[in-house]
Design a protein around this nucleic acid. Structure first.
Lengths: 348, 348
DNA sequence: ATGAAAGCGCTAACAT
DNA sequence: ATGTTAGCGCTTTCAT
């Protein structure tokens, strides 16, 4: 068995409480005993039993993150790792551990979160929120458990959450195209039930409007966050009698599909079609040509979420300093959009 | 405060121990009380305090995974997520939670693991083992803590570990090239201090030897697991007076760099140079052209590691059924190697 | 079949 | 400045 506080106390000839006080640097403890006890602590290789600590302190210094497992959301792969890195880094810095869990279904997710939170294994939860409606949120919300959303909820607009300004991001992406002289700009969207798709579409429309460009319904296509969606969108656009000269694409992976399709058909990017997309995952940089992308600060998203959650855990009851955190985005211009319509005579 | 076993006992008019017994389906409990207590349990929304449980049971039903944070290993991004998915899925199925942690340095990693394991927060650890030597392994090993390696250790060949047969994998990849008629096959390796690089190089050499093809030292280049390494390797090879017609590349990301460089210089893959690499991360399929790659079963690697660890935790002391688990690999042939030298007259 | 009591390892009043 | 005691929520002998 491992060394307990009692063992140390006995060997040091003091009481367990004294050892405990030494451990927590209690002020009213003599230099001398402190030194003595610390030596024995070291000598015996003492390690505090975290479970015992948290049983009495009623706090676990842990948070949990729920992995979405549904295939639909797996597009997030490299995305998700970045997020988790951000979360774990910040949590560890604040002295918190991160428990990762996954639920097959929404009900399973609730069961998992409930077991962890109600079972006092973790102090709070971070949720990846993409669905428009989510019963896990409902559960946490109604039970007053500390949690933070990555994304935003239409239904509960006032939750603690970390998100990008996706409307603005899409606005910026579209403006970027417009500034290069494009007037025929298409939009490849994601599933219409994701807040993300909706927001980005909104920003796109706003930018067009503001520049006096008519929005054309037939230049907006919806799909999944999958390469195939991009491929399909591409073939759709290229078969149109009137084609766009630029595309704003909801996600890098989708752009990848577009690119591949264009390449197969012998079109050149950005000469024949300019492209800008979102998320700036590593694939955007690696692709051929590299894709201009809105960097949404994925790591930062995770880092901030963890920070916000831990803060809210440590200041339960107090009014929240900030409810909604917006992570700044920035456009990373790469080859896929480096083509000015202005100095060109030819158009496709 | 939340509902405890005592609260339930009081309301049910029984003793705490009875409630506990009902909870654990103890045989010697009457149908009647069991039913009654269960109803109240439900009614009051009881959830067992996991910390209290594990304090008495001396088991945590948790394992931890250490995230390598060093930039050098970040090439693993999408790789790592797959791994974690496998680990979490299997662990959850076995009723275990997964704690994710990261250490900046090797010493920090030891501190983290030590805190978690000695502090009885987790029962064991999963380690990503890529370095040739690793003090974390040393620590766990010498303290008899349950752990499993993903990868293998030269120094401690007999540890519980999950790995691929990388020699065979590289052998297969190389043979694949040879079967297409290639006789001039180069190898782009990773850092020479990774067992992975060494093993794959070994397999490459073995395949050449067996086919009576001379190995040429100048057709083997070492690098990092980065795109740039591929780029550099490519330019190196293409500037050689005598060029290879095929390349075996240690990692998909590296292949990606090769591909990009070739594209820039106007070379065609596979016509001018055939390529096969390892890991089969999503980028391999998405790339242009898609890269032939050895699928090493990343998810499976994680799943099996978790399984092996939990088994070893639950059967501590007993002799291990199996020490080294080998996850099968398989070659996924895509466009980058679909080119037969045999029916060709022209060669670069 | 059930209850009483002890104890897991730790902290925090409450003494002194 | 340090020791004594009680108790966190649970399980598990040991009684009955």
């Amino acid at each position: 068995m491992s060394v307990t506080i009692k063992d140390v106390a006995k060997k040091a000839g003091v009481s367990p409480s004294t050892v405990s006080r030494v451990l927590s640097n209690h002020p009213r403890i003599s230099r001398e005993t402190s030194r003595k006890v610390k030596i024995i602590l070291e000598e015996m290789g003492y390690h505090p039993n975290i479970m015992a600590q948290s049983l009495v302190s009623k706090t676990t210094n842990s948070i949990c993150v729920i992995l979405p497992k549904s295939a639909e959301e797996l597009f997030l792969n490299s995305f998700f790792m970045e997020l988790v890195r951000g979360i774990v880094t910040q949590a560890n810095r604040s002295g918190y551990d991160v428990v990762l869990s996954s639920g097959g279904s929404e009900q399973e997710e609730i069961d998992v979160v409930s077991r962890l939170i109600n079972g006092k294994r973790v102090d709070g939860a971070i949720l990846l929120y993409s669905r428009k409606d989510d019963s896990v949120v409902e559960f946490l919300q109604s039970n007053h458990h500390p949690f933070v959303l990555i994304g935003r909820s239409d239904k509960y607009p006032n939750l603690l959450s970390v998100d990008n300004d996706n409307v603005q991001a899409a606005y910026d992406a579209t403006k970027h195209m417009i500034s290069f002289g494009h007037k025929r700009i298409g939009f490849v969207s994601g599933p219409p039930n994701h807040v993300l798709s909706v927001d980005r579409l909104k920003g796109y429309q706003k930018a067009l409007e503001e520049s006096g460009i008519d929005m054309r319904k037939d230049w907006i296509v919806e799909g999944e966050f999958l390469q195939e969606s991009g491929y399909r969108a591409m073939s759709f656009f290229m078969n149109l009698p009137e084609r766009p000269t630029a595309l704003v694409v909801v996600d890098d992976i989708v752009s990848f599909g577009v690119l591949r399709g264009l390449h197969e058909l012998g079109y050149k990017v950005p000469d024949d079609l300019s492209i800008v997309s979102f998320n700036n995952i590593s694939i955007a940089e690696l692709s051929n040509p590299p894709i201009s992308s809105i960097d949404i600060g994925i790591y930062n998203l995770g880092y901030t979420a963890s920070q916000a959650l831990i803060q809210s855990i440590q200041h339960q009851g107090e009014p929240q300093f900030q409810k909604r955190h917006i992570i700044p985005h920035r456009l990373v211009v790469r080859e896929s959009s480096m083509f000015s319509m202005v100095d060109q005579t030819h158009q496709i």
